[in-house]
Write a protein that binds this DNA or RNA. Sequence first.
DNA 1: AGCGCCGGTGGGAGCGCTCTCACTCCGTGT
DNA 2: ACACGGAGTGAGAGCGCTCCCACCGGCGCT
Lengths: 349, 349
Amino acid sequence: MTRTDRPGPGDARSAARPTVEDVAARAGVSRGTVSRVINGSPKVSARAREAVEHAVAELGYVPNQAARSLVTSRTDVVALVVPESLARLRSEPYFADVITGISDELASTDLQLLLTLVRNEDERERLTRYLTARRVDGVLLVSVRQDDLLPDLLEQLGMPAVLGGRRSERESLSYVHADNAGGARAAVRHLVGRGRTRVATITGPLAMEAAGARLAGYREALAEAGLAPEDALVAHGDFTEAGGYAAMCELLAEMPTLDAVFCASDLMAVGAFRALREAGRRVPGDVAVVGFDDSVIARSTEPPLTSVRQPTEAMGRLMVQLLLDEIAEPGRPRRQVILPTELTVRASA
Amino acid sequence: MTRTDRPGPGDARSAARPTVEDVAARAGVSRGTVSRVINGSPKVSARAREAVEHAVAELGYVPNQAARSLVTSRTDVVALVVPESLARLRSEPYFADVITGISDELASTDLQLLLTLVRNEDERERLTRYLTARRVDGVLLVSVRQDDLLPDLLEQLGMPAVLGGRRSERESLSYVHADNAGGARAAVRHLVGRGRTRVATITGPLAMEAAGARLAGYREALAEAGLAPEDALVAHGDFTEAGGYAAMCELLAEMPTLDAVFCASDLMAVGAFRALREAGRRVPGDVAVVGFDDSVIARSTEPPLTSVRQPTEAMGRLMVQLLLDEIAEPGRPRRQVILPTELTVRASA
DNA sequence: AGCGCCGGTGGGAGCGCTCTCACTCCGTGT
DNA sequence: ACACGGAGTGAGAGCGCTCCCACCGGCGCT
């Protein structure tokens, strides 16, 4: 490690920032009028408005948000809360996509995005204090588990909030989520349609509703096709590559005759690929594989991965829209949106 | 798309939040003393401190940050600015790792992280206003390009800032970056050491210093080995998988006899793998491949990718440390840290 | 001519906090 | 016994903004 020292910033700090008062003096109007112009009130004459705008430009005036917040009690910040171990953020393209969508949608507002990773009790408590202090106008919460108490806290605080996913079918908060069961059904139907009869699945962590729904969809499609469910065809993963690998090894050991596997995430499918390769099974010749997410990696595996596409980015965008509505109209009814999924067929199945 | 409406939040909003005044009354002391206790001033008697702490707990008092900000002009927020097209955030594990490190290090402070994606002029202007309004205490800036003006703005505003990477060797701001040239040299030496004599490279976008440094390292190692540089051995990518693929195709067309390729990012290496596979070349038999980043994907490619490891997460952490120092002591000298890189050898080279 | 009205404006009040300063009450030194 | 200092405390003064209300003038109406 090399360190170099260079001269400091040389104190380029410019003179004190102008305030409304300064602008008012410059424009020859009162503070009230300046405030009205800044906040786009219609009750200002064209003359006054112009004078103020002029003064603002000349002085380089920028409102002090802290002062504004103090009186309006709005912060113009929304939090994205990710209750996840670092391992996932790192590898799951899901988060990056959601963030992209969120950030995109936020760009047209003047809200900023606070990113909060909650990985342990300490951080959770810190977040609780933060929310209690109402330092954000609203919260986006992704990747919630069924027993997560954060949503309850949000509800109790009367804090506008939108979930990405839901805790259960009777979720009380607003949420946006994908039709997980439907996607899983489509995946398994596809597999069955290609003549596979021993279709296994690698699930996500069942504490997440999405994972449970994907498993349910898998079972439904199996039943539909008249195939008997078997415990040995179900292995549990945790949405990671390593988890997928381990689960695939397990499946191979317990049910060597399987000819297809539906993975509840692309990343787990990548792990499954690796296990299959090591076991000398060919994809899709010996075993057909379908993933879930249709993330970037699905395109670059060998062979390319057939996967259930969920509109992750659109979900992020929609979450923001719902949240904005809820912020604008605090008491409004919760809204719950389910977005369709779609099977993208590639070479792996 | 399905929509369901449920009853609203039922206005669970609790009574008005208590203020210092309330706490003071409850504890039988003055506002000043409460403030001192809250902010951990030593000039408070044990008796008073206890009374205040009691009152705080009873009332569930949480300081109003806006009011505090207004007087201290600190915000307890730092921004992470990512001037990148969405495409990269999505796929590059680099960002996720940096964010993890940053978030980790921030967890032990009471600072929050604002995530700001700057993808076009509009967003850039929005950020400028935001920074000018001093709505953050400091800025972390990653993935800067050489001609980026954001760092200049930061400097001009006297805003504490730390770059991840640098614009050039005589960067004026504080930064943390990896020894890119050294890593590239190590990669190419390794290739040459394995008897490869026609070593190509796929560069990153040369507007980024890191990409330039990796190319420079490649050239140095080649010279060291007495191998002549050839233009046909250099193709330009953009750090994406697709870019890597295109660059590899180009290399294959112009220099079919190449026997190794050093890719300036793992993701581009994945693209190169694909191109090589399609061209019927074996890795590492026909062509040895080395990547850069040693990200998660390096472990799960087929064959696993030899890659230059840069301590991305540690870089994120270190960036925060430098920034905290700079916030604590505004005029302090800039610090510039170069972290070593290391070659992780796997099957691809 | 007089009334009300309404678009437009100015200024006081106050959001909740920290900071500074003056003050009190001790113990200590002479 | 006295002044002296230091530790602890209370209260006033703002930070920069929005909100509210009182106000001003000119218009159309009776």
